[in-house]
């Protein structure tokens, strides 16, 4: 067995174990940390496939940015775990039955006519850099999909702002333009009062 194969199975095992812990860990912070571990091992698997750029992007973007934010949210929010677990025991039998059924069905389909998995496509080892090849594909062959992904992000921004922006009623913000435009008639009101008589 080649050394790369050993590495593949080792990383694969860690990835599966970490992914399993993500959904079984009782503490959400632990779950998030296991997710970080899963991302890192997935990145290692990509490295084995010579997809260096993607592996680094995964570590930088997901581990470095997304998961840090995620951890912040998990730690900041006061989530009452006991309440979340309330229905667990009650729904366990049904969920277990459905889950086992699904697993058995999947196993039957896969084992029924097991012919082995076709050899994975050979890792690309282009002469020029991985990043350049990826960039070239992204901006030529997949330009349309790339632009669509951009629109999805735009919608995410619009939706996030629409759902969270609340204008405060008691704010004291002054619009300078309105101040400059003000006229005397709008500010000063002359009221004629009758002169007071001496008693």
């Amino acid at each position: 067995m080649a050394f790369e194969t050993v590495l593949f199975y080792a990383f694969g095992a860690v990835l599966l174990a970490a992914a399993l812990r993500v959904i079984t860990a009782r503490n959400p912070v632990h779950a998030a940390l296991y997710l970080v571990l899963a991302f890192v091992t997935a990145a290692a698997l990509w490295l084995l496939l010579h997809a260096e750029f993607l592996a680094l992007a995964l570590v930088l973007v997901y581990v470095g940015a997304v998961m840090v934010l995620f951890l912040f949210v998990v730690m900041m929010l006061d989530v009452n775990l006991e309440r979340l677990r309330e229905g667990f025991r009650q729904h366990l039998p049904l969920a277990l039955a459905v889950g086992v059924l699904m697993a058995v069905e999947m196993a039957l389909v896969l084992l029924h006519r097991w012919q082995g998995v076709a050899a994975p496509p050979r890792a690309l080892a282009p002469e020029d850099s991985n990043t350049r090849a990826l960039g070239r594909l992204l901006y030529t062959q997949y330009a349309y999909a790339f632009e669509l992904a951009a629109v999805v992000l735009l919608v995410a921004i619009v939706a996030a702002i629409a759902l969270t922006l609340r204008r405060r009623k008691d704010r004291r913000l002054v619009d300078p333009a309105e101040q400059v435009r003000a006229r005397r008639a709008e500010r000063v009101r002359l009221v004629s009062l009758p002169a007071e008589k001496d008693r």
């Binding site: 669509l148 629109v151 999805v152 919608v155 995410a156 619009v158 939706a159 629409a162 759902l163």
Partner: peptide, 8 residues
């Protein structure tokens, strides 16, 4: 794209 808009 469609689903994201609908959720919002």
């Amino acid at each position: 794209l469609l689903s994201l808009c609908l959720y919002a």
